Simulated scan of single mutants.
Amino acid sequence: MPIHFLTGATSGIGSALARALHGRGDELLLLARNDERAAELAAEFPGASTVVGDLEHPESLAESVGERMPTRLDSVLHVAGVVDLGPVSALPSAVWRRTLAVNLEAPAELTRLALPALREASGRVVFVNSGAGLNASPQWGAYAASKFGLRALADSLRAEEREAGVRVTSVYPGRTATPMQQRVHEQEGADYDDADWIRPESVVTAVLTALDLPRDADLTELRVRPGR
C-alpha cells in the first residue's frame, strides 16, 4: 500500500488531496502545525498518522519530524503555503522571512529529511507551486520569489536524485477556489466567488496523474489553468 507524507491537509488543495488518497486506501502521514490540528486531522482521516511541525521554523523540523519519518515513502507532497501581498516598498522583512520559510525553506528541509525513505521506494516529490512561480506580478514579490525558488529547488533535486530513482514533479495551478484565494481577494479588495476559479479537486487530478504514472514515463511539470 503506498504511503504519502503530506503538508497542508487542513485546507484547500491539501485537504482535497488527502481526501482522495485516503478514499482510495493509501496510507497517509499528515503534517499539522500543532496538537489541536493533528487531532482534527486524525479524526477526519481515520487510520492516518500525524506529526506536528512548524513550517515557519524550518530549523526545528529535524527534531520534530525527522524521527517520525518512515523507512519507506512513496511520495512527499508539499502543498502548504502562505501569501501576503504588498509592494516591495512596503513589505517588512518579517513577511519575507515567513513567506520564504514556509514556502521554500521548509519544503527543502522536509525533503532532505525524507530522502532516505524516498530512495528506498523510488518515490516521488511533488511541489504544488503556483502560476506565480512562473510569472511575477506587482504586489506579489515575496510570494513569487518563494515560488520561483521552489521551482529552482525542484529542478536541482530532480537532477541530483535521478540516479537514485526519485522523481520530482512541479504543479503550477492558476487561481484555485480555496480559503487562501479568498484571503488574496480580500487583500486585493476584490469580490470573491468560488465558481470563478479552478476547483481544488481538479488540481488533485493533476497530482494523482503524476503519482500514478508508470515508470516508463515521467511528468516533471504540470500547468493547470482556469478553463473559462
Rank of each mutant, 00 (worst) to 15 (best):
T178V: 09
E27V: 07
D194L: 09
L104H: 04
A9V: 06
A38Q: 02
A38N: 05
S156W: 04
E160T: 11
T169H: 06
E221N: 14
M69S: 08
E221W: 11
R112W: 06
L6E: 02
A48D: 03
E56T: 14
S89C: 07
V79P: 01
A94T: 15
S75H: 05
P214Q: 07
F5V: 04
R97L: 11
L17Q: 05
A144K: 01
A32N: 06
F5E: 01
E120F: 06
L134W: 04
G8P: 03
E160Q: 12
G131F: 08
D191A: 15
R151P: 03
V171P: 00
L21G: 03
T7S: 14
T7K: 04
A106R: 00
G23N: 09
P87C: 05
A154V: 08
G174W: 06
L219D: 03
L115Y: 05
L100S: 07
R228Y: 14
V207Q: 03
D84A: 14
A80H: 00
L55C: 03
S156R: 11
R24L: 10
R158S: 13
R112Y: 05
L134P: 00
A9S: 12
L115C: 05
I3L: 13
L134V: 09
H22G: 01
E160N: 10
A18P: 00
G23R: 09
H78D: 02
V224H: 08
P116W: 07
S130W: 01
D218S: 15
L30R: 03
E221F: 09
T99M: 02
T178K: 03
G8F: 06
D193W: 13
T205W: 11
L213R: 13
L222D: 06
V224F: 10
Q181D: 07
Y192D: 02
A101R: 03
G227I: 13
H22T: 05
G131H: 12
Y192T: 08
A190L: 14
V128M: 08
A16W: 01
S137W: 12
Q181I: 05
G165R: 06
E40Y: 07
G141T: 13
L110Q: 01
R112F: 02
V79D: 00
H78W: 09
Q181V: 07
A39S: 13
R112K: 12
R68D: 10
V51F: 04
P46S: 13
L61S: 01
A159W: 09
T209A: 15
E63M: 11
E63F: 10
W96T: 06
E120R: 12
T111W: 02
G133V: 06
S122D: 11
V51I: 13
G66S: 10
T7G: 04
L91D: 04
E56G: 15
A132W: 04
R225M: 13
A152C: 14
P116Y: 08
A117W: 10
E160W: 10
L91E: 08
